[in-house]
Write a protein that binds this DNA or RNA. Sequence first.
DNA 1: CGCGAATGTTTCATTTTTGAAAAAAAATGT
DNA 2: ACATTTTTTTTCAAAAATGAAACATTCGCG
Lengths: 244, 244
Amino acid sequence: MPNKNKVLFIDDDDGLQIVVGDYLEDNGFEVIGAQNGEDAKKAVKENQDFNVILLDLTLPDTQGFALLPELTASGAPVIIISGKTDTTEKIVGLEMGADDYITKPFEMRELYARIKAVMRRVDKPADSVTDAPVEKKAQKKIEFKEFYMDPSQYQVFDANGESLDFTTGEYNLLEALASSPNHVLTREYLFDLTRDGKFDVYDRAIDIQVARIRKKLSPATGEKEVIKTVRGVGYMLSTDEMAA
Amino acid sequence: MPNKNKVLFIDDDDGLQIVVGDYLEDNGFEVIGAQNGEDAKKAVKENQDFNVILLDLTLPDTQGFALLPELTASGAPVIIISGKTDTTEKIVGLEMGADDYITKPFEMRELYARIKAVMRRVDKPADSVTDAPVEKKAQKKIEFKEFYMDPSQYQVFDANGESLDFTTGEYNLLEALASSPNHVLTREYLFDLTRDGKFDVYDRAIDIQVARIRKKLSPATGEKEVIKTVRGVGYMLSTDEMAA
DNA sequence: CGCGAATGTTTCATTTTTGAAAAAAAATGT
DNA sequence: ACATTTTTTTTCAAAAATGAAACATTCGCG
């Protein structure tokens, strides 16, 4: 191996810069740090040959996302680091071309593993038979509880990977709910998200659809409703996790 | 009205550019068109005062979403135009800061209506009920004593993170009290804040609701009432902290 | 065009939430 | 301590919101 692998680490947190930087350097990487968008852009421009780019988008809200197009354009795989568990952010990130996604706080070992993984993926784009299992690019799957949803199939699966036979409409509604777990969403909001036309306050269509979804989920969840109703407001997909 | 309202229309389809452009101009807008991401960026940069930005996600160069951060940063509301009925896309778009979403094909009248709607919303941010495709912005959690209230869940939690099973009405009232801790609030004020209609001096509804709230808080607080009664005036949520 | 699946509507039952009334308790002033 | 006023408590019924079932309609596809 002639040269060390080069990592661009974009994060404005000094502490993390040091911790992550040291760790990666100890493990044979050359680490270039950037504390803000400008530095990051400059770095990619001057230095085209990064093997991996780590992008923390915790801070200036959507600012981090704006960098993504330029970063991916450099050809290097991008791993997003985020503070939120938010599913949407993950999807957006992957949708915009990031290669993987890791949530803070994370173990150094895990970060290392992911860096290795994306690099491996880039090295041999057309995977042939290898001894190492070939990881796929991170999926835009949505998960909650023991279920996961596959947008490409418009389908929901239980812990055993069994399809729950959702209709497209049911899928869409559940996805809307799952995209903001532990948030009460009004019927109107759900309506707007999942169908056209104007919402009428007395419209029970959402209720019915929720009932149908509950029925399909119930074999797996038993008594506890994953979708809680909040009287006078709307519905909420609950993961029973403590809010931070 | 001194100046026309300015619209930035980002779409690579020539046909649409003409149709939409003409229609909006006929209806009193000044329309600036952009056919790709670069032009769009340039337009917002040079021209900060758009009233609305229309973004078609199916662009040639940039991933449409990638533009979103920069567009919203300009302060103008963004309406996403998309060909797909895809719910995911809607969710992601709104979550990333777009203000509304419209699916192709659409009626000109509808587009017009939505433009009007988002402009209205920008003018008076307080307007919530009328038309609201956008989920309410993340509200801040309220804390007092060992409790915390999560507006997105309409729920109160104790120190252990256990839900106290508040009803929406109870939540609202407690929120009203908690938003002005150590201030006595009159029943009338609380009434106005938490429900519609006119307050009647002999109305004991607030009292009863307060009682219910106290009961739910009492397991955690014991004897000491968090909500203090101020005879002849109203109620006060006390944090026992010295006033500044 | 017709069939079946998917979804919306309507209606009625059930649950939850809330306010009213009455009575007890607490505070206030004399 | 007593009378008066205000607040609390309790019970209970009304109202509001939701769930469920049955039925109607729409949609997609062969």
